[in-house]
């Protein structure tokens, strides 16, 4: 900003535009190249995966169709990602696996975020006994190792039919990963509550529900979004762990976690049939990276103190640098000329 300011040719109408906080976030985010890369990558993956899902739904693709004669084939034109140990086309499984993984991640993040925000907001807003009770619940839930509780929940709901295992997985992930966010929201709300605008809402006699929903939550939303992206990435990984322990979805449904964990069941296979883990692993990496980059970008955009350089600035900077260079060259040239002239003069 300081760059532009120093570059200013005096104030004009154009500079008087007042950006709302969200517009500002948007502008900042847009100007963060790494974050934009993350967003584009993320959208590409989602598009690819959704198209695959559309294709398999329309064609009624049979994921259970196995063919021993073409098992464990390396990547080729016909099977760009090779085939798996049952002779199935890996590329379809990898992209379809993303569909399930994304679903699990979206739904469980949604669940974790809703519970976390609600609980945190209630605890932070009301304080006292309610806060105490909720924080004890948070303490209890977070005092157990994630996998330990996941195991037990999976065992308790063991009779879930295969089609509903997906939702069980979502439930396990959601119910166990809201505590961190609840703490965060509670802390934020507690500090916001004492600020002037909240005192004003109370003085105006606005309903408590509206105080929370209309005034407090929008103010913590930024943090929620950032924390949500991290939960999202965490959910995809946690699903992989559950798959490894046979607690997630079963065959023939593919997920990236399941593809990876099946490949990891034999370390020799990891060398001999590398394509069975490289592709889902790489996709998983790209997705988690994109989500994390978006999260980082959002964090920076939300931070009011953070500096940023917009694209226009960058262009301007470039232009300016080029112009400076030009000027420098010109100066040098004129100097040369001067020198030449002066030397001429001497001559």
């Amino acid at each position: 900003m300081s760059d532009t300011a120093s570059n200013a040719e005096g104030f004009s109408k154009k500079d008087e535009v007042i950006l709302s906080p969200f517009q500002l976030i948007f502008v900042k985010f847009k100007s963060n190249r790494l974050a934009m890369f993350g967003l584009i990558l993320f959208l590409t993956i989602v598009a690819l995966v959704s198209l695959t899902n559309l294709y398999t739904t329309v064609t009624n693709y049979d994921f259970a169709h196995t063919d021993a004669s073409i098992k464990n084939l390396p990547p080729s034109l016909q099977h760009p990602f090779g085939t798996d140990r049952f002779g199935r086309n890996n590329i379809i499984r990898v992209f379809q696996g993303g569909w399930i993984s994304l679903q699990v991640a979206f739904l469980s993040t949604f669940m974790a975020v809703s519970i976390g925000v609600l609980m945190g907001a209630i605890a932070g807003f009301f304080g006292g006994i309610i806060d105490n009770v909720i924080m004890r619940v948070v303490e209890v839930v977070s005092s157990f190792p994630f996998l330990a509780l996941a195991y037990i929940i999976a065992a308790v709901f063991r009779e879930t039919p295969a089609e509903q295992r997906l939702f069980l997985t979502v439930f396990i992930l959601g119910i166990l990963s809201w505590t961190g966010l609840a703490r965060l929201v509670r802390g934020q709300i507690m500090s916001l509550r004492e600020q002037e605008f909240m005192v004003a809402t109370r003085a105006l006699g606005i309903k408590k529900r509206n105080q929370i929903v209309k005034h407090l939550i929008p103010n913590v939303l930024a943090f929620v979004v950032v924390s949500g992206t991290l939960t999202f990435a965490g959910a995809i990984l946690s699903e992989a762990f559950l798959s490894f322990l046979n607690l997630s979805v079963t065959e023939p449904i593919p997920t990236w976690g399941a593809l990876l964990s099946r490949a990891a069941s034999n370390s020799t296979n990891m060398r001999t049939v590398w394509w069975q883990w490289v592709f889902p692993g790489f996709m998983l990496f790209l997705l988690i990276m994109s989500v994390n980059l978006i999260g980082e970008g959002l964090r920076d955009s939300i931070d009011p103190k953070a500096t940023y350089i917009t694209r226009a600035d960058r262009k301007n900077n470039k232009k300016r640098k080029i112009e400076e260079k030009k000027i420098a060259i010109q100066k040098a040239a004129t100097k040369k000329m001067e020198v030449a002239e002066s030397s001429k003069g001497r001559v």
Partner: peptide, 29 residues
Amino acid sequence: DFWSDTYNLIFNQAYLDKLSFKITLQGLD
């Protein structure tokens, strides 16, 4: 769980649809 993958693939939906009776699969500890 040990058998889960195998039996879910054997009695897949396409095959079950061809039978004249229902087969239900259940994984248990």
